[in-house]
Design a protein around this nucleic acid. Structure first.
Length: 262
DNA sequence: ATGGCCAACCCCGTTGGA
């Protein structure tokens, strides 16, 4: 079973890219972020024609998350508990049934948090809500994958110029501490479980020739519950799609688990 | 990491992204 996360920065504009990548990388589950469309504008038919069921939580203009699944989707939840006033579409969770039993997967789009003076409190509060929710989900002892755009650079090896990022909401010490708090509940970060190589990035800014100069960040992650981590067999980043025409500024991050696909 | 971008919306300049 192959699972991926990808911030696609507009699903409608990126549809051809995503369909091409689905054919080439053959994931069974895909967590998408930054759909930038309402739920009823999501190109559901195109993904169904490609063999995927869809769980979608859209929003006008910004945010929006979805899960594509080759497995039947048994149940979905949108919104992260803990703030009934929060109207941003940044979380969707689905329970899917595989040949080996149920698997729980979440697609999340964690707030960026910049500028810090204005938006950082929302980011930290959102992370606290995520930690609380994840803690409850782990009690179920299911294979559970928390995948998405975390807007968190976990360590200095994950950014081209760490010194320049220490005050940024993606790399501030409080951000990394909260990410570690989440990991320490018992999650395994899929890519880091397979390699300690520095300079593996999942995002390159459109500005300032960041892609051409390889000035990237690793901010998209797959967190695995113990029941999922026990079956991890590999992880990788599909960096090559960043060189395609009309690319997203993020690329897919993937993990392979020894779970029967169907 | 800010000289250089990109997307949605309708206001075709403004807002948001990272």
């Amino acid at each position: 079973m192959r699972i991926a996360t990808w911030n696609i920065n507009s699903v409608r504009l990126r549809l051809d890219n995503v369909l091409r990548w689905l054919k080439e990388s053959t994931p069974d589950l895909v967590c998408l972020q930054e759909l930038k469309c309402q739920t009823d504008q999501f190109p559901k038919q195109a993904f169904e024609d490609a063999g995927y069921n869809c769980a979608v939580h859209g929003q006008k203009a910004w945010n929006g998350v979805a899960i594509l699944s080759r497995f039947p989707i048994e149940d979905t939840h949108t919104n992260l508990p803990g703030d009934s006033q929060d109207e941003q579409s940044r979380y969707i969770e689905a329970l899917v049934s595989t040949k080996d039993g149920v698997l729980r997967v979440a697609s999340l789009y964690l707030p960026n948090g910049n500028p810090v003076a204005e938006k950082y409190p929302y980011k930290l509060a959102w992370m606290d809500r995520l930690i609380q929710h994840a803690r409850e989900r782990l009690l179920l002892e299911e294979p559970f994958i928390l995948a998405g755009d975390y807007n968190v650079i976990p360590s200095a090896e994950d950014v081209h110029n760490p010194a320049g990022w220490v005050e940024d909401a993606l790399f501030k010490i409080e951000t990394r501490q909260k990410f570690n708090e989440l990991l320490n509940l018992g999650f395994t970060e899929a890519l880091r479980a397979t390699t300690d190589q520095a300079g593996l990035y999942s995002f390159w800014d459109y500005q300032a020739g960041a892609w051409q100069r390889n000035l990237g960040l690793r901010i998209d992650h797959l967190l695995l519950s113990p029941q999922a981590a026990n079956r991890l067999s590999g992880a990788r980043i599909d960096k090559y799609v960043r060189a395609w025409e009309k690319p997203s500024d993020h690329v897919p991050v993937l993990a392979d688990l020894e779970i029967e696909a169907r």
